[in-house]
């Protein structure tokens, strides 16, 4: 039983890797970006758990800026993904412009909330 599961998992892992290798570079860049921000968020959560939640607004803005960035990047990824049929009408330039706007708003708010 255990063996078969581990085997399955192995196979799954392989197929995942091969499937992911097929994704275009720009999507990979986005993925990297997402991973980076999620990682930053995790570091902050760990830091908060150690130090305590005193400047709570700073913590919140720090973490939410990371999560926000990640979420927006995922949104962008969904939109510029050529395989996604839903957004055929949406040109990637438009999607990116929206993304930039969204990020500007996000970081403006973060700046406001940080101090």
């Amino acid at each position: 039983m255990v063996k078969s599961t581990s085997k399955d998992a192995h196979a799954l892992f392989h197929s995942l890797r091969s499937a992911y290798a097929a994704t275009p570079t720009n999507l990979k860049i986005i993925d990297l970006y997402v991973v980076f921000s999620v990682f930053t968020a995790l570091i902050q959560v760990v830091y908060m758990a150690i130090v305590g939640s005193f400047p709570f607004n700073s913590f919140l803005s720090g973490v939410l800026s990371c999560i926000g960035t990640a979420v927006l990047a995922v949104c962008l990824r969904i939109q510029v993904n050529k395989e996604n049929k839903e957004f055929k009408d949406l040109p990637p330039e438009r999607a990116f412009a929206d993304f930039v706007l969204c990020n500007l708003v996000l970081h403006l708010v973060i700046m406001n909330f940080l101090g």
């Binding site: 969904i78 996604n84 839903e86 909330f113």
Partner: peptide
């Protein structure tokens, strides 16, 4: 659908941040 994701996820993050302002 991915539209649902786009409609919801940014709203929660941005909305929460803005609300705490």
């Amino acid at each position: 659908s991915s539209r649902l994701y786009i409609a919801y996820a940014p709203l929660v993050v941005l909305g929460t941040l803005l609300a705490s302002l």
